[in-house]
Design a protein around this nucleic acid. Structure first.
Lengths: 304, 304
DNA sequence: CTGTTAGCGCCTTCAA
DNA sequence: TTGAAGGCGCTAACAG
């Protein structure tokens, strides 16, 4: 008799109406991704990992763009109120305290990717470690005057601590190796290569200019290289440059850089969320993914 | 009395349960995007345009990834069967006849972006025109031996005719200007710069090598430039190169290229879909967006 | 203009 | 094991 039903299901191509299911179950059967997903290719790559996992699943996927602070606020508020999603993946953004507790009390399982927060499970990249490795890598080549170029820390709208963590790693590496920290070797700018070019130009005019620069993203690294080119400095002969991210174009431009496991971060994050959703428990789990140096052509030993 | 209800709504923060609404209305109140959205930055940019429009709307947004032919099939089948979406935006892919009529009979309003199809409204880019303009641009500089490098036409999984259209434009421009078409000036390869580098290398070894190459995408153009560099040819002095797309990195690399209105295509497509959804009529509308040449540093007059 | 009711399609509980 | 019924929250049609 069960058999008969099974046959009928096949014959009629029956599949349950999701909307009725949701209404009846009081669940949305949907997972949300909140991300500033148009700002950088890396976010897209993480989303790709998530999608890879969730497509094997019954869950629908809703994507929310939180590029501006206003949209971000609206998005979180909406999510809590509407019950649109059973689980939420937040990429490269840490919800503030208010948002976090709202999410928590609404019982929405939440996993942070590329961000940390005390209330939520997260899969973060060890940016401090990555920054340290990058700096150590330069030191290993014999550099002693090492500059650092990064975004402004924690831009208000959408932020995690990755920029700052890389900076911390940079400082730690200097310290570990008994190298002095010099404030004028550190520059911040908005996140595009043109701005990086400007600040790098200044940086290269400093007294006892750096022989190597660690840029906290590949995009910035390209600006640094432009600045070097402007001044007639050859890379890596006169100036070594290491980036961070390993975006697609970096291979083409032969940039030595620090790669973070983007796809994997999405896969892991989605896996964690699924587990939480299935088990119903919401212990906070912390995963930290390692970075890896990709050696290409923009780092060498300093001359003289 | 209406007033009382309004007050209560505000006071209780009431908002209707979307799932119940959907069930009752028999509508999904959702718009789907079907795209191979991880393959190229341009797709992401189009999605961004769509999102910009739809975020002002009551519609939810569901994104479907149709990177492989199998997923594509499953996606369309699922969409028609499940009634997951009221409207569908398809990016850079033309549904085949079977899929198209299924969509049609299921009454799912569909708009194609960067693709054409007789059954659906679409906003397409005039790639033939763009290919013609690029070629004419080179001819305008005095080039007579012009090569063409592109993807293989219509890769099976996910395709529109853009590559082929650009090729047609290329041929038309030659013809219009009384220039001979030479088969050995045309090369196809898979879509990455490494492959382009290989075929361009061959192309540059041809008897009476081209003095200019039109690459049907910027990524391929970079491969062409690499090939030129390998052979000690200077760009643009010894070889002019024009690309297509104007992806972000092209400005950085100073590539002369053809820009297509990516964001706008998303905005327009979403607008058309909304209009169709609201009016209920499903006349086929055809929008064609123009391309524009971005003059930078990789094209000059041929030497001697 | 206000109030009531049936029904959307499913799941869960309880009765047979 | 199988069947019947109530309810999820809303909309639409109808009655007062």
């Amino acid at each position: 008799m069960r058999e008969k039903i099974r046959e009928a299901i096949l014959e009629l191509q029956y599949s349950p109406n999701r909307f009725a299911q949701r209404l009846s179950l009081g669940k949305s059967l949907t997972i949300g991704i909140a991300a500033a997903w148009f700002t950088t290719p890396s976010v897209v790559e993480r989303i790709r990992g998530i999608e890879q996992v969730l497509s094997e699943t019954q869950y629908d996927l809703n994507v929310y763009n939180i590029e501006t602070i206003e949209r971000r606020k609206r998005c979180f508020a909406d999510i809590v109120r509407s019950g649109k999603v059973d689980g939420l993946l937040v990429i490269s953004v840490a919800p503030n305290d208010e948002e976090a507790s709202a999410l928590r009390t609404a019982g929405i399982a939440t996993v942070l990717i590329d961000a940390k927060g005390p209330l939520f499970s997260h899969v973060a990249i060890d940016d401090t470690q990555g920054g340290m490795e990058a700096t150590n890598f330069l030191i290993g080549y014999g550099h002693k005057k090492i500059g650092f170029v990064s975004d402004y820390f924690s831009t208000s709208a959408v932020c995690n601590n990755s920029q700052e963590d890389r900076y911390i790693g940079y400082k730690q590496a200097l310290e570990m190796n008994g190298l002095p920290f010099r404030g004028e070797y550190v520059r911040n700018c908005h996140h595009n290569h043109e701005m990086a070019r400007q600040v790098a130009t200044e940086l290269l005019e400093v007294d006892k200019r750096p022989t190597a620069i660690f840029a906290s993203s590949d995009t910035l690294a390209f600006g640094v290289i432009e600045a070097a080119r402007d001044k007639g400095l050859r890379v890596p002969d006169d100036l070594s440059v290491i980036g961070y991210d390993d975006i697609e174009i970096s291979a083409y431009l032969n940039l030595t850089t620090v790669r973070q496991p983007l796809l994997e971060s999405g896969i892991e994050g989605a896996g964690m969320l699924l587990k939480a959703l299935n088990s119903g428990n919401n212990e906070v789990e912390e995963h930290v993914l390692p970075t890896k140096i990709v050696t290409r052509g923009t780092v060498s030993s300093p001359r003289n």
